[in-house]
Amino acid sequence: MRVERSLLIGHIISMVFGLAGLLLVLPNTDFINALPDFGKTAFGWSMAGGGVVYMLLGTSAVAVYAYRTLGLWHCLGFMIPAIGLSLVSELLGTSTGFPFGHYHYLSGLGYKIAGLVPFTIPLSWFYIGFSAYIIARAGLETLAIHKVIKYVGAIGFGSLLLTSWDFVLDPAMSQTTVPFWIWEQPGAFFGMPYENFAGWFGTGVVFMTVATLIWRMKPLTLPTTQLGLPLAVYLGNFGFATITSIAAGIYIPILLGLVLGILPLAVLYQMATAQPRAIGSEGLEAEII
């Protein structure tokens, strides 16, 4: 747990430094020009690798958490589909325009797989997707409904929370002083095509469905008293996107994200944590899935 906390703190601190660089330093060219040579070199390194660091820390924090609370099978059972299938979607998107629309990545997010998709992008799908899904799954497990409805609901809410984060992130990050990706055919939603969000939701549904099927192969005990890390990861990344959007003067996506993301997240988290113990393969609330 100390390792998890350290990784989480590093993840959040690196996002704060990233925000400072994007919103305070980059627009101030006089400040950058006044830096000594070593300062300019350090700034160049931070711009080239800052995004990579915070995503690696987020991935590591969630991976360690998933391994500790769920075990290796369920950790890898979510991680591998999330990273693999999101990478397939991103490669298709950047090469064909399906399922997100026509766009391409610029520099700043690390080595590009096949020259198209930064290797950190599938990692972000994993750690945000897992954080959203585990809270949705734990919350719905408290309801006295058929287990299939719980599974479908967790996939649906998890994908909605994942997409709600992108509502706020995508318009801002493609319109900052130094954008990280560019839309070749700008759409009607603050420069985003609506199909982008359908692609996000659909990709989330696909890899969360695969993970759900894999998780059914072995007994699972869901953590209900230890959901703080996934909650902090989701809120921290949502906050990063929100501040970036405010700086860009983009507000409607924030409202959508709050209504479709933060509100259901809060309800599901409260449902899960109101239970006295973990839900799963042991105890009176046990269910072999």
Rank of each mutant, 00 (worst) to 15 (best):
F240A: 02
T203N: 11
G158C: 11
F119P: 07
F207M: 06
I252F: 15
Y127P: 09
V16T: 11
I252Q: 13
A232F: 03
V25Y: 03
E141R: 15
G199E: 05
I250A: 05
M15S: 11
R137A: 10
T94F: 09
I246C: 07
A61T: 01
T69M: 13
I113H: 07
T176Q: 11
L284W: 14
Y67H: 14
F130A: 12
S107G: 06
W183V: 03
L22H: 10
P219E: 06
F190G: 00
L284K: 14
L227E: 02
A272H: 03
A82N: 00
L143C: 02
A272M: 08
G249S: 01
L235W: 03
Y103C: 01
M208H: 12
L23W: 02
F31C: 05
D37H: 12
G84P: 09
M173D: 07
T242V: 12
L229K: 04
V25F: 07
I145E: 02
E285N: 14
A272P: 05
A114S: 13
T224E: 01
G187V: 00
L7M: 10
P122H: 00
L57E: 07
I155M: 11
S174N: 10
Y127A: 06
W45F: 15
K218Y: 02
L22Y: 07
G153N: 02
E195H: 10
K147G: 04
I128P: 00
N196T: 11
F31Y: 13
A272L: 06
I113V: 13
P186G: 09
Y65N: 03
D166Y: 04
A274D: 13
A154N: 09
L87C: 04
G49F: 15
R68H: 11
S164Q: 10
V3R: 15
